[in-house]
């Protein structure tokens, strides 16, 4: 077991109403899993992913990573995010001032690797993702699909146990979207890399080995 979310609940209190976003949501992620979460807009998919990624805290429930209970505001949270988790968002969130290579090297520099080491591995990763020719480009010189593949490479930099992706293809046209999905599937197949992907793309979700739908705050398995 890589990550286990147990009985998560989260409620937002807006000025006049309370929104129960998550009610007793549980999810286990194992090695080699490719898990998709679908659901209507605003149902709480991102919230679920943020909690699993230690970016947000649940109102109740527990999160276990590597067998230990972890909290988003604990001192070790940044290190866990850096080492054990990788993030891909709908928007690429690459740093504009840094080249593709440097962006991918960033998590390794944060982990304390030397610049030379980090760049060597970043180069390898970008080559695996078919971007060998693009390593010195800046984010604004890349296509949307390329940008998302660079952020996928960045998410993989420290060989995380799990990559959390929030609508990674949400901004892409079908061709580029396919390109990114292909990458995710081949990484999952060839490297046994675990993924949790939030998506609107029901067709793509069907190719996952486990899929869930978030309905009214409850996380339901839909493929079994």
């Amino acid at each position: 077991m890589i990550l286990s979310a147990k009985h998560l609940s989260k409620t937002y209190i807006d000025s006049d109403q309370t929104i129960k976003v998550l009610i007793d949501a549980s999810l286990d992620v194992e090695r080699g899993d490719l898990i998709c979460i679908t659901g209507k807009s605003g149902c709480g998919k991102s919230t679920m992913l943020h909690i699993m990624g230690l970016l947000d805290a649940p109102d109740s429930g527990e999160l276990h990573i590597g067998g230990k209970v972890v909290h988003s505001n604990s001192a070790e949270a940044p290190a866990i995010r850096n080492r054990d988790l990788g993030f891909v968002f709908q928007f690429h969130y690459l740093i504009e001032d840094l080249s593709a290579l440097e962006n991918v090297a960033l998590p390794m520099l944060i982990a304390g690797k030397s610049e030379a080491q980090a760049k060597a591995r970043a180069k390898q990763l970008l080559a695996v993702l078919g971007l060998a020719e693009r390593i010195n480009r800046y984010p604004n010189q890349l296509s949307g699909g390329e940008q998302q593949r660079v952020s996928l490479a960045r998410a993989l930099a420290n060989e995380p146990k799990l990559v959390l992706a929030d609508e990674p293809t949400g901004n892409l046209d079908p061709a580029h979207s396919n390109e990114v999905w292909e990458m995710i599937r081949s990484l999952n197949r060839d490297l046994n890399q675990a993924f949790v992907v939030v998506t609107h793309d029901v067709e793509a979700a069907q190719k996952a080995n486990k899929s869930f739908e978030l309905i009214d705050g409850k996380l339901l398995r839909i493929d079994a």
Binding site: G53, P78, I80, R81, N82, R83, Y93, I95, I110
Partner: peptide, 16 residues
């Protein structure tokens, strides 16, 4: 703030 948020997401601590 976006860069800062991204760095934090990637595991950089506030101190650095």
């Amino acid at each position: 703030k976006t860069e800062i948020a991204v760095l934090k997401t990637l595991g950089a601590n506030t101190r650095s």
